[in-house]
Amino acid sequence: MTRQHHLKGVLLASTACILWGISGVAASTLFKLNSQVTALWLTQVRMIIAGLGLLILGQASGVKPFKIWRNRRDSIQLISYGLLGLVPVQLCYFEAVKFGNAPIATIIQFLGPFIISIYFFLFKHVTPRRSEAIGMLMAFIGTLLIVTHGHLNSLAISPVVLFWGELSAIGVATNTLIPRSILTKYGAMTVTGWGLLVAGLCLNVFTPLWQVHVSLDWPTISLLLVIIILGTVFPFLMFANSLSYILPTTASLLDAFEPLAATVFSIAFLHVQLTGFDLFGGILIILAVMALSLNVRKMMGVLHRRTDS
C-alpha cells in the first residue's frame, strides 16, 4: 500500500464523515425553515430514496442485490438491521436534532462505541482494559458536562434531546453489531441499500408518507437533496471505498470529523451558541471514542472468532 493510496483513503473517509456532519446541520436548518417537516417524514424520505439509489447503483455495477432474499436467515437478519439498527441511528438522531441542535445530537450519538463495549462486557464477558475504563470515564465526564453544564442538580439540555440522543447512540451499536455476517457475504452496498429501503417502508406503519402534507418549495427541496445525496449516498460510497486503501481502525478514528463538522458548520451558518462546557465535554467524548475505537475492532475480532469456533 503506497503513501498515495493511504492518503486517498484518509481523504475519502474524512470527507464522508464531514458530509455526515453537514447532513445533521442541513436537517436542523430544514426543521427550522419548514415546520411541516417532521423527523419521521424526513427519515422516511431519506431512507427510501437513498436506499433505492444504492440498490440501483449496485445493480448497475453487477453486485446482484436481490441475491440476499434467497436466504431466509440472511433476509431476517437484514430486516432486523433495518428496523433495529438503521431506524434508531437515523430517526432518533433526527428527533434529537429537531428538539436540540446538530452538534449536541451528533456528540451524544458518538457514544455508540461505548454501548458496544458494554454489550461485550455483559453478554460476551470481555472485560474492558484499563485504557477502555479510562475512556469510559472520560466520556461519562464529557456527557455530564454537556448535560448539566457543571450544575449536577439540574439539566442544561432538554430531557427529550437526551432521550433521543441516547437512543441514537444505542442505534450506532446495533447498526454495527447486527449486520456483521451479511456485510461480509453480500457487501455493504446491498446490505445498506436494502436496510434503508426496508426501514423506510416499514416506518409508513406509523404515518404513511403519502398522508403527510409538506410544502416542497425550493429551499426545502435543496436541503432534502443535501441530506439524501450529499449526506447519505455520497458519504456511504466514499467511506466504503476508503476501506480499500486504509484499515478499518484508521477509518473509525476519522469518525471524529462528524461531530467536529456538525459543530463548526452549526456555529458558522446557524449561529448555534455552545458553552465552554459543551465544547470541553465534546472534546472529551471525541478523544475517548477515538481511543476506544481501536479496542472495539479488537473486540469484534474476538466475537467473530468465538462465533466461528
Rank of each mutant, 00 (worst) to 15 (best):
W41T: 09
G301Q: 10
A156L: 01
G100I: 08
G195K: 07
I285P: 11
V161F: 00
L247F: 14
S23L: 03
L224T: 06
F66Q: 13
V126I: 15
V214R: 02
L177S: 11
H271S: 13
L19T: 00
I76Q: 14
V226P: 05
G112W: 07
W69S: 10
M136I: 15
D278M: 01
L253N: 14
L201I: 15
G62C: 07
G165E: 03
F163T: 09
V214W: 05
L247M: 13
A156T: 02
V63T: 12
I76T: 12
G82A: 08
W164P: 02
H5P: 04
L167V: 06
V37K: 09
S168V: 06
A39M: 08
L30P: 01
R129H: 12
I170G: 12
A251G: 15
A96P: 14
P65L: 08
L223V: 02
I68V: 15
L274Q: 06
L254P: 12
I107K: 11
I49R: 00
L11H: 00
V10C: 13
A50F: 04
S266M: 05
T190D: 04
A13L: 07
I228N: 08
F99Q: 15
S23Q: 11
I104N: 08
H6V: 10
S244H: 15
Q90M: 14
F163L: 12
S28V: 01
G200L: 11
S117P: 04
T43E: 04
F277W: 14
Q36I: 04
V233G: 02
W194H: 13
S252Y: 09
F234V: 15
S266F: 03
H149T: 01
K98T: 08
A27G: 07
N34D: 12
Q90V: 11
T174M: 14
M47S: 14
Y245M: 05
L91R: 07
A199L: 11
E166Q: 09
I157R: 00
F257T: 12
L274C: 04
I182T: 10
S242G: 12
L209V: 13
I157F: 05
L237S: 09
G82V: 02
T29I: 13
R3E: 13
L155Q: 03
G21I: 04
L111W: 03
N204Q: 14
F239I: 13
L57T: 02
L270M: 12
R129F: 06
T232E: 02
C17D: 00
G82R: 09
A26Y: 01
S61Q: 15
